[in-house]
Design a protein around this nucleic acid. Sequence first.
DNA 1: GAGTGGTCTAGACCACGTT
DNA 2: ACGTGGTCTAGACCACTCA
Lengths: 257, 257
Amino acid sequence: MLPSSLPWALPLDPASATPVYVQVAQGLTQRIESGHLRAGSALPAERELAAGLGVSRVTVRQALALLSQQGLLTRRHGSGTFVTPPPRPGELPSRSLGLLSSFSEDVRARGQIPGARVLSFERVRPSPQEAMSLALSPGERVYRLRRVRTADGEPLAVEDSALPAALVGELRPADVQDASLYALLWARALSPARAIRHLRAVNADLTLAPLLGVPVGAALLTTDRVSWLADGRPIEYARAHYRGDRSDFVMELQGGA
Amino acid sequence: MLPSSLPWALPLDPASATPVYVQVAQGLTQRIESGHLRAGSALPAERELAAGLGVSRVTVRQALALLSQQGLLTRRHGSGTFVTPPPRPGELPSRSLGLLSSFSEDVRARGQIPGARVLSFERVRPSPQEAMSLALSPGERVYRLRRVRTADGEPLAVEDSALPAALVGELRPADVQDASLYALLWARALSPARAIRHLRAVNADLTLAPLLGVPVGAALLTTDRVSWLADGRPIEYARAHYRGDRSDFVMELQGGA
DNA sequence: GAGTGGTCTAGACCACGTT
DNA sequence: ACGTGGTCTAGACCACTCA
């Protein structure tokens, strides 16, 4: 309970056009990037920072929220705020240089153990999106599967898959507990021969964030994939949301311009 | 200045384990998704919402920030908070189904007009990242170019390019004002024949957000690309940050599992 | 139990857009 | 001029972690 002035100060100008919390965030960013605050080390407590900088705790929290959202800081309830360790190198599913591979294969290729936790499994009418992507006839049903995909037990993605019920035949819950859906398809001679994948970036919403263990708003890499059999029939439509901080998709480009 | 109770109420439980601002956000989400709040329409003012729901304005703002970050709401200073219109369909650079194409070509392929605003252009020592990606000899210099890439005048991406100075020859600022760097390379018989592109998702930081016209924290699709000439010499290393809400990369996958 | 971050309040003033 | 969102304050209580 000392005067608790910080070992360092940040130059804050309340009159400036840039908000104080942005100034605090910038100051902290600089101290992190310059190495004055080392990776993994704890920041002063919020109340301490506020007192030391002469601003309210709310303002400090606004700054910390900004940096936490950018992945620069990690906040742990009851424990403290820490400088996020630098990203581990190349960490993602999809070694895919144009090669069709399953999530399980991709994770294994990185030397990690793939896993899956089934959130739901049902046989339902397709959504319009599913019906279109899978070119379903009216009345056809799909198996819809939502899983959290893990690497070494850590959540890496949430994946929603839809398969035409008429094409894949009877599927029971026990069939999809297995980590690899592709292995099951292979066993039924339904291996996809071709796929098209769309990639986008979105912010984690209230549903996905807890499933992936990231804060709401964290950047996610979202993919939509349609897979076809060799004869051209669609066999799977899947939408997956990957943790942005643990994913890195690779594509190889040839010729052209 | 009426009692200003809202035309609708949300069921809020202050004693619940889920925070009130999350409850407010969920309630608003439901009203938007169910169509009670139409796309483009304005929400009640923050003070009005707070009064109507019996919570403080700070709590309302926390809920609105959550939804704004997810792209569900758009806030306009001095004007109001609005339901974000639904995403326009297929909007991205890179029709690239494994084909090497420039930003300009990709944008034109979508029927839009590509543009570029040069933020900086310099001849410098390479960063370690650039030196490694371009396989530079010690002492070699690179041209480094930072541009905001636009489609129909709207910012779509921020792109940092690095080219080996020894390989491309003299470059003057006027040379790179042109929208397409690839066109310039083509003119010098330095067209890339092959490239590898990595894709990740990150949150917009304080530097990128204003350049792209998005809020801090918005999801961006970031790509690292190295391009090689037919003879195997690296010709360009580029890192680009695309607006997540306006980008959609496509990759085609063959054979394999 | 002491210390941390998480939530919430009631109020103030500023900056921006529109009229 | 007015209404809007943006920033900021000083304080309170809760919930989690760790010794």
